[in-house]
């Protein structure tokens, strides 16, 4: 039976994550970090090969604070500034996660990320990271950017603004952001299930097209 569990990043425990099952709903209240293509490449190039470059140390420590026991959200928001110069977000739906498949195993392992939010699901390597290190993949509703933006209470700045608005790491305070667990820490993936069932259906349908 699907359940709704509240999690509060960046203080999520392995136990909480291991209790989640494919199909469960989670409600997120806390601070999460966005990161997509440039962000993942940056992490790989700078932090995953031993020595942290001195110039990047401050960013590294900042990222670690939010990612350890935290949530990485695959998203590139629309950001405006209010008259006081405070950034706010009007649209922030998930982006396609599969592009980060080459990186995510190592990112989860290195930082101790407990959940990744995105859309479309990820592959076997990420699924194995979820199982090994205790993490889940959470599916948001692709395209529902205005809806998702409603859950954002505050934007606490960013890291690497020079990557451009969509690609920077944005620090977001969210309240009751709801997602579905589609890949759990027990090796189960809804995406693998649907791929299998739809492939079987396609095989049958193809046989009937003449």
């Amino acid at each position: 039976m699907a359940q709704t569990i509240t999690i509060n990043p960046p203080g999520i425990t392995e136990e909480q994550i291991r209790s989640l099952k494919k199909g469960d709903m989670v409600s997120i209240s806390g601070i999460i970090l966005t990161g997509r293509d440039t962000a993942h490449k940056y992490i790989k190039d700078n932090f995953l090969h031993g020595e942290i470059p001195e110039a990047e140390r401050e960013t590294y420590e900042g990222l670690k604070k939010f990612l350890h026991g935290g949530i990485l959200y695959h998203a590139g928001p629309v950001v405006l500034n209010d008259p006081n110069g405070q950034p706010y977000i009007t649209a922030v739906g998930p982006t396609t996660s599969l592009r980060e498949e080459p990186y995510e195993y190592d990112v989860i392992k290195h930082f101790g990320v407990r959940a990744v939010i995105g859309k479309g699901g990820m592959g076997e390597k990420t699924l194995s990271a979820c199982k090994e290190f205790g993490a889940v993949y959470l599916h948001a509703i692709g395209g529902a950017a205005a809806y998702t933006a409603k859950s954002i209470r505050k934007v606490h700045g960013n890291f690497k603004p020079e990557f451009g608005t969509p690609e920077a790491f944005w620090i977001l305070e969210v309240e009751n952001l709801e997602c579905v667990v589609t890949m759990d820490a027990h090796g189960e993936s809804l995406h693998a299930d649907i791929l299998q069932s739809s492939s079987s259906a396609a095989k049958e349908i193809l046989g009937g097209i003449h």
Binding site: A91, G93, I141, A146
Partner: peptide, 24 residues
């Protein structure tokens, strides 16, 4: 549930004149 959120999203974006999807 997904279609419900999508429809709600469409209405929010219309009222606020903000992008339906952040990927314009």
């Amino acid at each position: 549930r997904a279609l419900g959120i999508i429809l709600e999203n469409i209405e929010i974006a219309y009222d606020a004149k903000t992008p339906i999807c952040q990927d314009t």
